[in-house]
């Protein structure tokens, strides 16, 4: 398996005058892997994700995602790269309130030609319906406004949207934290099935160690991040 993400000698701080909060000599993630990233809150998990997603650039070192060194890309190119290759799921408030379920799911295809092209066999709507039914959302519900959905349903819609157009990477930042404990494993298993189906790599961030056993690998941020003293902020 080839590497999807390669980080080497990364240093990052929000302000140049402050000491780095991310200092990672090396990290590689292989294509198709399901990685659990654990760490206490404030340990720099979200910052790491923003670096991999190309939202922020490190002060030094290099990050390659799908063989693309992010620091060689300008802001607009990184935006486009992210839209084409990465799907995001966040803890809460993932959905546009004034769009229906199905419109929320098809949204990424309007911002990325590539993800639209990745859906060759069927229309956008059919693909969205397939993803939603794989995530156990069927029937009238998919034409309803998202505000009528439960939190669990909303998170599955968010997952369907992240998977829409077969991006190579999905970054999930605490997506289960707002769910009941007994629903968390269900959600993750559905996500796994679909990632396998689409050959999508999954980066899953959580502080909930109970979920760790479900994943191929765990990366403990405390182990790889050499920015030793992490302040709570």
């Amino acid at each position: 398996m080839s590497n999807l993400i390669e980080l080497s000698d990364i240093q990052f701080s929000w302000l140049p005058s402050q000491p780095p909060i991310i200092d990672i000599p090396k990290l590689t993630i292989k294509r198709g892997e399901r990685i659990f990233i654990s760490g206490d809150s404030g340990s720099g998990k979200s910052t790491l994700l923003s670096l991999i997603g190309g939202v922020n650039l490190p002060q030094s070192g290099s990050i390659s995602v799908i063989d693309k060194p992010l620091h060689t890309l300008g802001n607009a190119q990184r935006d486009l790269f992210r839209a084409d290759h990465i799907g995001f799921i966040f803890q809460i408030f993932n959905l546009i309130p004034y769009l229906s379920v199905i419109d929320n799911v098809t949204l990424p295809c309007f911002f990325s030609k590539k993800r639209k092209q990745n859906i060759q066999q069927s229309s956008l709507e059919d693909e969205a319906i397939r993803l939603l039914s794989d995530l156990r959302l069927t029937g009238d519900i998919i034409y309803k406004p998202v505000t009528q959905l439960s939190t669990g349903q909303q998170q599955r819609v968010a997952a369907a949207r992240a998977l829409m157009g077969k991006p190579e990477l999905i970054i999930a930042d605490e997506p289960t934290s707002s769910l009941d404990t007994d629903r968390r494993a269900d959600f993750i298993n559905l996500l796994f099935e679909e990632c396998d189906h689409q050959d999508t790599t999954l980066l899953f961030v959580s502080h909930d160690k109970a979920l760790e056993s479900l994943f191929h690998h765990t990366i403990s941020l405390a182990d790889i991040n050499q920015a030793a003293t992490v302040e709570d902020f």
Partner: peptide, 16 residues
């Protein structure tokens, strides 16, 4: 702001 952040996360560029 939340709506705009969501749009951004699904690939909308700032100018959009």
């Amino acid at each position: 702001r939340r709506e705009m952040a969501i749009l951004r996360s699904v690939g909308a560029r700032p100018w959009q």
